[in-house]
């Protein structure tokens, strides 16, 4: 293991960690806002998948990754209306609605994949390019790790502070947290609970779509049905393990990302351990994190409880 820790390899691992963390950060910050509004939305996995599919379709037909990103985000925002309708209007069990959405997403994807992708010439399209930030990228170690990434990665750095600021320092953030803690407190002041939850779901969904689209466009030009491979669930784990606090969630995400990065490099370097061990690490780690970090003090009190007046 010693050689793993040496210069270029270490930098490569850390850079991989940062890029692996990017889509997770997008999804997690979106899902955090959703959950803080009291919606136990477990459809992150499915939404990320839909984002990736839409991004692939648009990118392979138009060739423009940015347009693909935009359409994917819009599509996921639109899809979120299903979740909103089922949970806020019909007041169905939120877990069941999320599960249904996940199954729908994977089913539709499989059908689409078998119809359009499998057995055909893979389309050529350009994903996102690496953007080196002048000067900063020349700093040893930190430069290649943090400042030679895709443009969206830089955006993802800004996201946790922005979400924190939104939740704790703006009027709307206070209202969102209020909806998650005690929706009636807002309702008795005549402010719509459903509308705020709907918007929170939409935000979460479009950020998950963004994460999925980035996963597709950032580093690969091929689509596989298990592209998301549980990352949406890791996001939910990160939120619970991070006790619904933005920066702790970032911490949990970087643990997952680091494990995956190490796994990738272990395969390349060729360690005498079956590579499956490395692949499974993030999932084992997620159970360990949940068992270890049991503080739920910032869990929204009304999380998962449909709100109705009577």
């Amino acid at each position: 293991m010693l050689e793993l820790m040496q210069g270029p390899l270490l930098i490569s691992i850390l850079a991989a960690m940062v890029r692996i963390a990017t889509p997770l950060l997008f999804s997690a910050m979106g899902e955090l806002v959703t959950q803080r509004a009291g919606i136990w939305n477990i459809s992150v996995e499915g939404t990320m998948l839909l984002g990736a599919v839409v991004a692939y379709v648009v990118a392979s037909t138009t060739g423009s990754p940015w347009l693909a990103l935009l359409v994917a985000v819009l599509a996921c925002a639109l899809i979120s209306l299903i979740m909103s309708f089922v949970t806020i209007v019909l007041k169905a069990e939120q877990f069941v609605a999320g599960l249904a959405l996940n199954l729908l997403a994977s089913g539709l994807t499989l059908f689409w994949f078998q119809t359009y992708v499998i057995g055909r010439e893979p389309p050529k399209f350009a994903g996102f390019e690496q953007v080196d930030i002048p000067f900063l990228s020349d700093i040893p170690i930190l430069g290649p790790v943090l400042f030679s990434q895709r443009a969206l990665t830089y955006v993802s750095f800004l996201l946790p502070p922005l979400v924190w600021f939104f939740l704790y320092r703006t009027r709307y953030g206070l209202e969102v947290r209020c909806v998650g803690e005690n929706p009636k407190a807002l309702d008795v002041k005549g402010l719509g609970v459903g509308r705020r939850q709907c918007l929170a779901i939409m935000f979460g969904s479009l950020m998950s779509g963004l994460g999925g689209a980035f996963l597709m466009l950032g580093y690969s030009d091929r689509f596989v049905p298990d592209l998301i491979a549980g990352r949406g669930w890791l996001v939910v784990v990160a939120i619970i393990a991070g006790n619904w606090m933005p920066f702790r969630i970032v911490g949990a995400i970087f643990i997952f990302a680091l494990l995956e990065a190490v796994g990738i490099h272990a395969q390349v370097v060729g360690v005498a351990i079956p590579h499956h061990v490395f692949l499974v690490l993030p999932y084992v780690a997620s159970l360990a994190l949940l068992a270890g970090l049991r503080s739920r003090t910032h869990q929204p009190v009304a999380l998962g409880i449909p709100y109705s007046r009577e």
Binding site: S106, G107, F111, Q114, T115
Partner: peptide, 11 residues
Amino acid sequence: PAGLVSAMEGL
């Protein structure tokens, strides 16, 4: 494709 059934399940 048989994947239609998976899509139908979701629907």
